[in-house]
Design a protein around this nucleic acid. Structure first.
Lengths: 332, 332
DNA sequence: TTGTAGGCGTTATCAC
DNA sequence: GTGATAACGCCTACAA
């Protein structure tokens, strides 16, 4: 079937070890025989079998990436940053969806382990610190991106949700808004908790009340944002501004507001979080907190590669968001 | 280090072949010893090494997926359909970006081959029929999704771009438009050629002229769509409707139109292609040709799995788009 | 029902 | 410089 090192050895009239050396550009091999061997390898269309190699070297040069779903624009951006660095580092990427299901997340990690990946990257983990016991057993470095399970993990990178949220809400306050709503994600996620926390802190610091009816939950996507905004619009006393968990929630909120016949930002200001590529193309262009998505992917991947190279790494990176003011927020 | 089948054999006082049989639930092994072995495996945290297994079985239960970039909402949707079916079929997914670079695409495919993936899926291939010589050499089944290189390939799935485009353009014609522009993708891509072809056919069938200045090229993304629309708006005689290569191009076109102080659809109607999740949330909601994105991913993956199972498969699937009429198109 | 032996494709350690 | 030989972890005849 596929041509192996032994086939080449036979054709070249040498031993398979010589072929191995010649192909791995080992110096200790006659220049002419090496050239002849490489020539034969080319002619026969030889491609080294990385399975055989991995078995002896105990390196697969593969890393596993777990995401909740790749059909999420934020995640897709981060993954593209990961892919870039991992690929340039000579590694391949296994990708699997957890569907935000903790059991499935663990299953996926274990299947990665069976494939003997050299490292694992998990986005928006629903397991987080629960890995710690597994970790020593697996003996595979894991880096978490935006861990969604309470508690510290060894190696992780995340955005400073709290500060980012304060940035956005302070901006709304400075515009004169006093009745500011928070349109969140599903209950229980760390980043939602922290963005809500930042929102509360900003209001409190400004001496503004935060009545519970102004905090609603969506699902981090447009449909949920729309429904949640519908609830806010059903209030007797409408908010004049809404800070949304993320841009996709804001997209849903905008739809709800338009359908109610209101204008943005004249009637209601809307701010998001993420700064997805679409954000500046929405009508009106969305004010939001930019996350360095691709860069976060790159950094997480680099942290993992450094770990694999045995280098010392910062165990926890926290990046800062940047407020991008566009047209969806205006004075009260 | 990691516990192997031999370690368990030693602990259980049996040979490693017995362990192998017990763990693969082979019937030919004493029930009690099997139970004991499985117990030990559990206690020691044994995880089979799929590398060792693959070497002898010559199956990796991995498939390689090549995309131009995963940070494209259309591609991300298709990939999520692929991942679902592939994962449920017991296979893992290698993901790699080609960055729309033909040389890199070939490199990636070859690296997949070195890893001895059981099959390969390529989205928006820039290589297409050029694979044919490589194919016999690689001896790995390849399925193409939306092949962008001219010519037929063996196994492929694509959308009927021509008919889809006609659907959209006929809709604009029925609304009374006569001056209809085509805002395309980069020059040279098959789907762009075919959507342009469908556009021309629809106009011709209606006896409408198609002056060359009404055909412009974008890049399949919002920035390119915006710039291309700017060019259309610089025309002395403006189009009253624009059919865009895809939804992201339409997103850019909308921005350009708003910035010019015009209204959609009152001044200009805009139609897209894809029906991305965002399409119905744009302002105004985008009229577009729906591609069954997730389903296309599923079908492509299923085709590959069927191929791997040695089943007969249709060599070429062509799916139909569906016109989704929303608010971005209106009477002239 | 179980053990022995061989081999998958590679790298690595020895001698020669 | 080169060739045996062993090893990696697993599966699978074949033998017992």
């Amino acid at each position: 079937m596929a041509v192996s090192i032994k086939d080449i050895a036979r054709l070249a009239g040498v031993s398979h070890s010589t072929v191995s050396r010649a192909l791995s550009c080992n110096e200790l091999v006659n220049h002419e025989t090496a050239a002849r061997i490489r020539q034969i390898a080319r002619e026969t269309g030889y491609r080294p079998n990385s399975i055989g190699r991995s078995l002896v070297t105990k390196k697969t040069f593969a890393i596993g990436v777990v995401v909740t779903t790749v059909a999420d624009p934020f995640i897709a951006e981060v993954v593209s940053g990961i892919e870039e660095v991992v690929h340039d580092g000579g590694y391949a990427v296994f990708l699997a969806n957890s569907n935000a299901n903790p059991e499935r997340e663990i299953k996926v990690v274990q299947s990665f382990h069976e494939r003997r990946v050299d490292g694992i990257l998990v986005m928006a983990s629903r397991v987080g610190a629960l890995y710690l016991p597994l970790l020593s057993e697996l003996n595979v470095p894991i880096v978490l991106i935006d861990n969604q399970y309470p508690g510290e993990f060894v190696h992780s990178i995340c955005i400073d949700d709290r500060t980012g949220a304060r940035l956005a809400v302070n901006h709304l306050i400075q515009l004169g808004h006093r009745r500011i709503a928070y349109l969140g994600d599903q209950f229980g996620l760390e980043s939602d908790k922290n963005r809500l926390g930042g929102y509360r802190e900003a209001l409190e610091a400004a001496g503004i009340a935060c009545p519970p009816e102004l905090v609603v939950n969506g699902d981090g996507k447009a449909p949920g944002g729309r429904v949640a905004m519908d609830r806010l619009l059903a209030l007797r006393d409408l908010p004049t501004a809404v800070f949304c968990y993320n841009d996709m929630s804001a997209v849903g909120a905008l739809r709800s507001i338009y359908d109610a016949g209101l204008r943005v930002p004249q009637d209601i200001s809307v701010a998001g979080f993420d700064d997805l590529p679409i954000a500046s193309y929405l009508q009106p262009a969305l004010t939001t907190v930019r996350q360095p998505k691709i860069e976060m992917g790159r950094q997480a991947a680099q942290m993992l590669l450094d770990l694999l190279a045995g280098e010392r790494v910062e165990s926890k990176i926290e990046v800062q968001g940047e407020l991008i003011i566009r047209a969806s927020t205006g004075p009260r």
